[in-house]
Design a protein around this nucleic acid. Structure first.
Length: 1002
RNA sequence: GGUCUGGUAACUCAACUGGUUCAGAGUACAUGCUUUAUAAGCGUGAAGUUGCGGGUUCAAGCCCCGCCCAGACUACCA
């Protein structure tokens, strides 16, 4: 081991230290994103980089690449990590495509109408929603939405997302609304819009019908369960005479709507003599009750006995359900028939095999009711309260009702408010279905003797996503888009779209194939009004005023909306909303008999119409002189298969006849580090704002680029810590490049390819390959491959290999030596490429790198195609071109040479490491490597002896001819050059330094 | 409940249509070196029963069946 710490050592080392060419740069080692990024973003804004990025490409005559933004919802001014992911993915695509020379307008959008906003606003109203007028309420909703828009916009910008932030699209824009109802009119013209009665999922909490998307199921819903006997009053089947059918239901409040009992034609039924044991009274002798003969499905006998505490004894032959055709029973509460019908949905999984059927209160019931021509009776209003049609009931035993009222205070209250005597005839009108009606009906059934058993069940039940109240089924009149009218075309179009990943195609295909008609109307205030009128003087089949949906009127209204916004619908006189020409053409319609529609459109219709209201309407998004065509890309979370992708597809196919997009890319959902869903209760929610505050936006963007977004995406602090390390590696790689290029002027210093060393050529080759791979990865939207590949290049090829190997040349060979300039030539190519390759994912880092790049190098960029044409001096890195592959640097042969070299290097390092472990050496320059190899191989290696020493970072290599390749290392007993630190034979050192060094400083 | 997707080292990803040897990289970790990228850099090392259990095959991380876990979508039990 050489002595290191003598005074002489220090003197000499100090003497020569100033003569070596160490890297020089101010580029900070740490990114300090939280502070530095906002500065960079300010620079982008001041430079109007977004605007320039479009204009420069336009001047080049570029093709457009249109990524149409799906609008996030404005219910909050914060953004979710999933939204951040989405926006960053979009921005990566846009930035990349722009670098590739495309004209890439990006117009951010916002979804501003709908229930959640309305609810939030109403919640803050002191006097409730009725305390202010509709236009006032709408005004507040608008303010609320726009305030949130400001908040979200700020956060999106902070992500480094570039776009038309000054002119985003918002679904509440006047022009947007005007175009939207025109689109609606067009669908109506084509016969795709109709008004119909439907059993819809109804939220009494929100007083509206809900779209499928707005329904959520709760698993722990508790319901009462009742077994109820319906006396048969007329039947042709002998076994059924003098018996009752038993139904089972979990919604007692639907009993007033009962019009039928549904059986399965093929299921076996039988009448049973039924004895019920009274549980509480079972010591007494008299603890049994004879319930008479009851009919249920035979298969359910045991279940029934258990559930109702009964003992069943079959009477007579069993029979198929079909044999009860024509049978009539009596409603247990009213003097009304309940007829027997049949349906396939009746199973023997649960209940009694006899299904209580209220056509106004259930999907299946509704369909069966229609099939059998039953009245669609729905005695419940929008608030979930019985109407007059629910009739009345008089208790024989008023004690039963009294007891029920004691248990249910709200029922008691209701009864007392009415001053009702418990024994009088009680109108059901005014009872709320879940709050009072259930208990009342149960009591009434008990009183009438029809109630066999009351129980409780915990099951999953649909709830309103906003008001969190249980849903009911209600048959109501609604506006629909008839998907049947264009389903076939829509499916054809799905197959023409490029779905990324491919399975997205199957998903949306099946959804569109199976879906029913699209219920478009919402009984809400905050939305685009459905531009329809009702004629009180003409009634439809349901006895309701006839509806008018007329293109001429809508076009007229659209003009008003375009000028004043859609609130005009509520503030203007009807007279102003309808053009005179309409009355001229329809002389039978009188103005006095008309009422305006109060429903608004489903918000999915708002966003689903953006291909018309935004893409076709904004000149930036259509190429000058070009007709509207499907945009290149929609990019959203996979939940949008049922949402935006579908609503956009449907409205576009219905009106344009084609899909609004050529490609659709979907990403998965963001989970926590363990792959669990994020939820407030688990406390595992990652807030993008926190990440930015702690690590900066580039780290967040790097995370986006590092994960396979096609499946579930995990996120957590550990990941960000690791990403920071990778980021630091990128940063230090850049810092090394900048530092060692401080004196390099590409104009004068570039070294010809033939004068480069082998390792230089290898790296240039690898850089070309890297560029090729990354281009491919981006073209295929495989960002995580980009991340892996570029990371590997920076740490393995550069940091651990090339940068280490060329240090001796850079630092000691002399400022203007060919070998130093050769290495710098490569570093220059690396800087020029990497700086731009970082852009899509790490724009801030890229800008930072450029700003610390020497003027000489920046000058050379101007003419080299580094930037978009005409980008001008002081340009942002965001105006750069994606690096292209330089064929002159591609050299496949070197690839083989390189991998061999790396293998040998590995062997050498292992040997050297052994010496180090034995404490015989410190740095590898203190070692000598002895290579033993076959003659021809040995010759090859001998030829590049100088280079090999650099590659192994040792001071000497000896060659011995042998059979197999073998490397050994030993301590090199030489003298140290105090300038370059390599060891030499004693006689080669003069004044403490070697010949080469002496030459370098002479 | 149904359909679909995924499960490879602590983390992010590899392993072409089943086939070169103990399933590979990077990061993290351990450890040594360096003080000439220095709040940096380099070397070396350990780390995986490829979710579990069967099966097909000369051969399975990859194909088949079952199960477990996670997620998404969809439906709803009257």
């Amino acid at each position: 081991m050489n002595d290191k710490n003598t005074a002489e050592d220090n003197d000499l080392a100090h003497k020569y230290k100033d003569t070596i060419d160490l890297p020089q740069t101010e580029f900070p080692m740490r990114g300090n994103g939280p502070v530095r990024e906002p500065e960079i973003q300010k620079f982008w804004e001041e430079q109007e980089v977004y605007k320039k990025s479009i204009e420069l490409r336009e001047k080049e005559g570029a093709q457009s690449f249109i990524l149409h933004d799906g609008p996030p919802y404005l219910s909050s001014d914060k953004i979710h990590i999933g939204t951040a992911l989405n926006k960053i993915l979009k921005d990566i695509v846009i930035k990349y495509k722009n670098q590739r020379g495309f004209r890439t307008p990006y117009i951010p959008g916002y979804d501003s109408h709908g229930l959640p906003i309305e609810n939030a606003v109403v919640k803050d109203l002191k006097g409730g929603r009725s305390s202010i007028s509709i236009p006032e309420l709408r005004e507040r909703c608008k303010d609320f939405a726009l305030a949130n828009l400001k908040g979200q916009e700020e956060k999106f910008k902070r992500l480094g997302v570039l776009g038309e932030w000054d002119k985003p699209y918002v679904t509440l824009d006047k022009e947007f609304e005007a175009e939207q109802i025109k689109l609606f009119a067009e669908m109506s013209e084509k016969g795709f819009i109709y008004r119909g009665l439907k059993a819809v999922q109804w939220s009494w909490g929100a007083e509206t019908a809900l779209a499928e998307a707005e329904v959520e199921y709760q698993d722990d819903h508790q319901s009462p369960t009742i077994h109820v006997a319906f006396k048969i009053t007329k039947t042709n089947l002998k076994q059924a005479q003098g018996t009752s059918l038993v139904i089972w239901t979990t919604t007692p409040w639907t009993i007033p709507g009962n019009l039928a009992i549904c059986l399965n034609k093929k299921v076996d039924y039988a009448a049973f003599e039924t004895i019920q044991k009274d549980k509480e009274d079972n010591h007494k002798e008299n603890n049994q009750k004879n319930l008479g003969k009851l009919i249920i499905a035979t298969e359910l006998k045991a279940t029934f006995e258990k559930e109702t505490n009964c003992l069943l004894t079959q009477v007579g032959e069993s029979f198929k359900g079909i044999e009860l055709e024509g049978t009539i029973t009596k409603h247990p509460l009213y003097n009304r028939d309940s007829v027997i019908v049949f349906g396939e949905h009746v199973t023997t999984d649960a209940g009694t095999g006899c299904v209580h059927t209220a056509p106004g209160h259930g999907q299946e019931d509704f369909l069966v009711g229609k099939e059998y021509g039953l009245e669609i009776l729905c005695p419940v209003n929008g608030q979930g309260v019985y109407t007059k049609e629910a009739l009345s009931y008089k208790f024989k035993n008023s004690e039963i009702l009294k007891k029920a009222a004691e248990k249910n205070q709200s029922l008691k209250q209701k009864l007392e408010n009415r001053n009702a005597d418990y024994s009088s005839e009680i109108e059901l009108e005014g009872f709320h279905v879940t709050k009072q009606a259930n208990d009342f009906i149960i009591a009434a059934l008990e009183d009438s003797g029809a109630l066999i058993k009351l129980g409780r069940i915990t099951h999953s039940y649909p709830y309103c996503w906003r008001s969190k109240t249980p849903l009911i089924f209600r048959a109501t009149e609604q506006w629909f888009a008839s998907v049947d009218g264009f389903r076939k075309k829509a499916l054809e179009e799905i197959d023409k779209v490029n779905w990324i990943p491919e399975r997205g195609r199957n998903r949306i295909y099946k959804m569109v194939e199976d879906r029913g008609d699209w219920c478009i109307s919402r009984q809400r205030t905050w939305g685009v009004p459905i531009p329809a009128f009702y004629n009180k003087n003409k009634l439809n089949d349901q006895g309701n005023p006839d509806s008018i949906l007329d293109k001429e009127i809508i076009d007229h209204v659209a003009k008003i909306f375009a000028k004043e916004g859609s609130s005009a619908w509520y503030t203007k006189d009807i007279k102003e909303l309808i053009p005179q020409s309409f009355f001229d053409k329809n002389p039978k319609v009188a103005l006095e008999g008309l009422e305006r529609e109060t429903d608004t459109m489903d918000v999915w219709f708002d966003s689903g119409s953006t291909h018309r209201t935004v893409v076709a309407a904004r000149p930036e998004l259509t190429k000058p002189g070009e007709k509207f065509k499907p945009v290149d890309l929609y990019l959203e979370g996979s939940d949008q298969h049922r949402g935006w992708f579908q609503s956009s597809l449907l409205t576009s196919v219905a009106t344009n006849g084609f899909a609004p997009y050529q490609s659709v890319l979907t990403h998965g959902f963001v989970m926590d580090e363990k792959g669990r869903k994020m939820s407030k209760s688990l406390g595992n929610v990652v807030d993008p704002a926190d990440v930015i505050e702690k690590y900066g936006a580039d780290i967040l963007r790097l995370w986006v680029a590092s994960v396979d977004y096609s499946i579930d995406i995990k996120v957590g602090d550990n990941m960000f810590k690791q990403l920071s390390d990778i980021y630091r590696n990128f940063r230090n790689t850049s810092r090394y490049l900048l530092g060692n290029l401080f004196d390099f002027d590409p104009k004068n210093d570039k070294v010809a390819y033939k004068d480069l060393w082998q390792v230089d050529k290898v790296i240039l080759h690898k850089l070309q390959k890297l560029t090729g791979t990354l281009t491919e990865n981006f073209d295929n939207y495989q960002f995580f491959k980009y991340y892996q590949v570029i990371q590997n290049f920076c740490s393995v090829d550069l940091s651990a290999f090339y940068f280490d190997v060329i240090k001796d040349r850079l630092y000691t060979h002399g400022k203007n030596s060919l070998s130093r300039k050769a290495a710098q030539t490569v570093l220059f190519e690396l800087l020029s490429s990497l700086n731009r390759l970082f852009v899509p994912v790490l724009p801030h880092l890229s800008e930072d790198i450029l700003s610390f790049t020497s003027e000489a190098i920046k000058d050379s960029y101007k003419e080299s195609g580094f930037f978009a044409k005409n980008a001008g001096a002081g340009s942002s890195i965001l105006l750069s071109n994606w690096p292209s592959i330089k064929d002159k640097y591609v050299n496949e042969e070197l690839e083989v040479f390189f991998s061999e070299l790396m293998q040998i290097r590995e062997l050498a390092f292992k040997e050297v490491e052994e010496l180090r472990q034995k404490k015989e050496i410190g740095k590898s320059l203190e070692a000598e490597i002895i290579i033993e190899a076959q003659k021809d191989k040995l010759e090859k290696l001998k030829n590049i002896e100088q280079e090999l020493k650099q590659v192994f970072i040792v001071s000497k290599i000896s060659f011995i001819e042998g059979t197999d390749l073998k490397l050994t290392a030993k301590v090199f007993q030489g003298e140290k050059c105090y300038r370059c630190w390599k060891l030499f034979d004693k006689e080669e050192i003069q004044n403490g330094i070697c010949h080469t060094c002496a030459e370098a400083i002479s």
